[in-house]
Nucleic acid binder design. Structure first.
Lengths: 196, 196
DNA sequence: ACGGCTAGCAAGCACCCACTTGCACACATT
DNA sequence: AATGTGTGCAAGTGGGTGCTTGCTAGCCGT
């Protein structure tokens, strides 16, 4: 017989996918079982209840993706930030349905907040650390909080990734070069000494 | 007997509120009827089906809020943009639950997209128009697309407004001055000639 | 060969869902 | 007085939902 890890893993993957598309209420144990090709009873034998199944599935899904890291010592600011932002944006795009659904479910299941928030938060602090180092090295001349432009970049990457498919006409900027433009805005706002 | 307009209006308001909090599946005709203090049958007599009820309620709700406009001729750039951004942010905050829910429901009900997208889009084009005029007047010196910083500002106002309550620790910037900081980032990136 | 583990299947329980039907009551207009 | 309109109430239909129970069958290590 197949190992139990396989079944449990399949169930979590299927559950995460259905949850992303249909939300908490739409993720019925019958649908999960059918999509996973197992009996509905098996779902309850593994997880005990729908609530446990969903929470484990969401946590498992958010543990899958790993966020990009910026170099310890800033090199080519623009190139490194663009690459970082591209990776960030790619993650958001890949998980847009999950992000949208989690945002909506926070209202009824606020305990989901921290699982989905830890990764992006760490990434943002990484960017703050990176840019602080760059400014300490005299390569960013603008004064003021370094958090503001970082928050703006993160929010933009999230928003554009999340709404990209559902209302593509909402962004007047063509997709591929948009991220470079956003990074340029940030760098110019922070007084980058190297002009592109 | 009370006029029919009253009942229908109450039903739409109640439905919009419940939908924002519980989503499409969570908005049951029983719950709506109970919250509105009417019989469930009355709901069907007014709207015919749950689908019609929800679509009319959402459209009615999104027709309620009116978005800010920037002056036809740019005056004090920073003051006008801050005031505009504050008003924008206030709308998003007031309707955060509805926005989150709509974002999630787009997956299953894509026809909701344009009702919730028209307002913000018009506001963004207004901002582009305003800043283009300011640049034509020689008050913004940076070259490049004017859309990028506007998109970033819009995305930031949306994101911060939408996630503000659910993960307040996510924004490292204190609430009230954050918007001014964001506007300053935009202005500096665009090469505003007036320093604050 | 045997016990434990994992799974399938069939059936059922109590509840919620959207939606319908039939009847009665109060009011407003005519 | 008659009519129409908006509403309430009681009941019911067919289906979905979370979850349980009892029973069977295959695979595993011992």
């Amino acid at each position: 017989m197949e190992t139990t890890a396989d079944t449990k893993c399949t169930l979590m993957a299927v559950t995460a996918r259905i949850f992303a598309a249909m939300g908490w209420r739409g993720t019925t144990t019958r649908r999960v079982a059918e999509a996973a090709g197992v009996n509905e009873v098996t779902v309850f034998r593994h997880f005990g209840s729908k609530e446990v199944l969903l929470k484990e599935a969401i946590a498992w899904s958010s543990a899958q993706d790993q966020f990009p890291r910026l170099p310890a010592v800033p090199g080519d600011l623009r190139a490194e930030l663009v690459s970082w932002a591209r990776a960030m944006h790619a993650i958001v795009v890949r998980k847009r349905a999950m992000i949208r659904t989690c945002l909506a479910e926070f209202e009824e299941h606020p305990e989901l907040a921290h699982v989905a928030c830890d990764g992006p938060m760490a990434a943002m602090q990484d960017a703050v650390r990176y840019l602080t180092a760059a400014r300490a090295a005299g390569r960013l001349t603008a004064p003021g909080a370094i958090e503001a432009p970082v928050v703006m970049l993160m929010d933009t990457l999230f928003m554009e990734g999340v709404i990209g498919d559902v209302m593509p006409e909402c962004s007047p900027i063509a997709g591929d070069q948009a991220i470079e433009l956003f990074v340029d805005v940030v760098l110019r706002a922070m007084g980058a000494t190297e002009e592109r």
